[in-house]
Design a protein around this nucleic acid. Sequence first.
DNA 1: TGAATCCAGACCAATGAGGTCGGACATATG
DNA 2: CATATGTCCGACCTCATTGGTCTGGATTCA
Lengths: 154, 154
Amino acid sequence: MLRLTKKADYGLMALKYLAEHPETPSVSAKDIADTYGIPAQLLAKVLQRLAKVGLLKSHAGMNGGYALSKAARTITAFEVIHAIDGPLFITSCTKGSKSCDLEPNCTVKEPLARVNESIAAVLKSITVYDLVDHETAVSRAAQLQQLVSLTARM
Amino acid sequence: MLRLTKKADYGLMALKYLAEHPETPSVSAKDIADTYGIPAQLLAKVLQRLAKVGLLKSHAGMNGGYALSKAARTITAFEVIHAIDGPLFITSCTKGSKSCDLEPNCTVKEPLARVNESIAAVLKSITVYDLVDHETAVSRAAQLQQLVSLTARM
DNA sequence: TGAATCCAGACCAATGAGGTCGGACATATG
DNA sequence: CATATGTCCGACCTCATTGGTCTGGATTCA
């Protein structure tokens, strides 16, 4: 179905929340989970992975929590998804290092890999800041669709 | 992980095979499965769905099999994936008709829906014919990436 | 008739996602 | 300094979905 996992969704929501509240030095995972009504422990695990990659800074102890380690503009959706769900491949057989083991004459993957790169490029062009301020993301997506339809017509 | 299912992969491979052999009036599911080394019964079920949707014409009996019902240029990757895996949604909570039931204040989905449409547009711009003749698909994907990077820089 | 093929449904197994539990650790406060 | 509170953190479990198989029936051609 080509959908990204709920964890990635939660991660994006949490980053958006942090970007919306830059004044608070660190917000706990529980607070974010409560505001969105999602399981706290699951969100905690997601945030842990984001902290491990370096997108978030964690602070233990009382009044502890998480904070963005970079500006919201410099965090792309691709980074977040990659950190949580691992490398994204549209083709199901290309799993990291080893390629199609069963079908050596599988020539379908090559063009699909290009499609994969295009999708990655789209995700890289969306930042956490765009999630907060809808206008830029919306207009950018509209532009992209126009461009795509143009190339399809050539 | 944002990957499409193996069934969709198999379907695209089969359509590519049919597009490469336009002279033969009908190819059996077993033949295609043997040439690619994929389970025959699973591919059969995939082809049945494609036939049900109208992308393929089936012919039972001896020397029977499948044939494209349209020109390869007019069959998009989006159609194939949609027929096999159902509607594609990048967000995991939007399932068809009913939207996010738990989080009414989930504002992340809106911009992601635009991203979803962009990806759909990319898939709609790739046809089965493009899978056979790599050049067009490759150059088109390269163009798309350039355009994306341009909009990202604005 | 019989062989080969499509078709439809139920059925099983494994992978991975969603979710939970207990422990380690850091900080605030008396 | 000691304790208690609240957080991070890793391992564990359950269950839905996917990938794949099996059985039986319908259709066509030699």
